[in-house]
């Protein structure tokens, strides 16, 4: 019963706040350029169907990639490029600041994530990773990989440190060192399928190349040492290339 009372007490509050998610105050901008073009969809390939002239107020509804959906005072809706919105003024009279991510933001990134593909000891490897930059030179990464060969399937989890000596270079080489664990699952058609799992250690070199916006290409070669309980350890070489995004 007290719980019900509490809920009832909260009800008018949520009602005035405009629902649980709240009604954000509308974001409005005023066109200061001679005109801005409206498109029917969020891409340059969609047709221009309207234009707002200088002095008109636009309400910003949502953003998709480099486009913003707007509504004007007559209730019409359309898509305007972020570059055009960045040339307007907001309700406080200030120019709208919508920076397009560029190389300087890439240099100061904190988080990155990506997908890479390549070869691990002659078999196809698919990997996904996430990384956190502690300084501009040093990052910690976590990797999940799947290796699909003709004789076995290998799943791997790896943690590694990455050091890049030249963070201010557009194409920046790095060195990496890490450890992980792998699970080997031989193919069912083999004579004596035996599952096993091992610790691994690895070292590698690679390079990142900033492309545009929030994206960069990454390529690397790693040498894995698989610690077995037999007399000799195994070694495997891996190369992969992929696309990453940073924040």
């Amino acid at each position: 019963m007290p719980l019900l009372l509490c809920l009832l007490a909260l009800l008018p509050m949520t009602a005035t706040a405009g629902g649980l998610w709240g009604d954000e105050p509308p974001l409005r901008v005023q066109v200061t350029q001679p005109f801005v073009e409206w498109r029917t969809g969020p891409a340059a390939g969609y047709p221009v169907f309207h234009a707002s002239e200088q002095g008109e107020w636009l309400r910003l509804l949502q953003r998709r990639t480099r486009w913003i959906r707007v509504r004007d005072e007559q209730g019409r809706e359309g898509w305007v490029s972020v570059a055009d919105i960045a040339g307007t003024r907001d309700a406080t009279g200030q120019p709208v600041a919508l920076p397009v991510p560029d190389f300087s933001e890439f240099r100061n990134r904190r988080l990155e994530a990506g997908l890479m593909m390549g070869e691990f000891d002659g078999a196809a490897v698919t990997a996904a990773y996430g990384g956190y930059w502690m300084t501009r030179n040093l990052a910690a990464e976590l990797w999940l990989s799947q290796v699909l060969g003709s004789a076995s399937e290998i799943r791997m989890i790896n943690a590694n440190l990455v050091h890049q000596a030249f963070p201010h270079w557009r194409v920046s080489p790095y060195f990496t060192l890490g450890i992980g664990h792998l699970w080997i699952d031989p193919k069912a058609t083999l004579a004596e399928p035996e599952q096993r799992d091992n610790m691994v250690g690895h070292a590698g070199i690679g390079v990142r190349a900033y492309v545009t916006d929030r994206y960069f290409i990454r390529a690397e070669v790693k040498d894995y040492k698989v610690f077995t309980d037999r007399e000799t350890n195994e070694e495997a070489t891996e190369w992969k290339i992929g696309l990453s995004i940073f924040f």
């Binding site: 954000e24 105050p25 509308p26 974001l27 409005r28 901008v29 910003l60 509804l61 949502q62 953003r63 998709r64 990639t65 913003i68 907001d90 309700a91 406080t92 009279g93 200030q94 709208v96 600041a97 919508l98 920076p99």
Partner: peptide, 15 residues
Amino acid sequence: VTPVPVTEDRIDTEN
């Protein structure tokens, strides 16, 4: 409505 400054994180981004 009170004037709201437009900043990147206030815009609902749907990618």
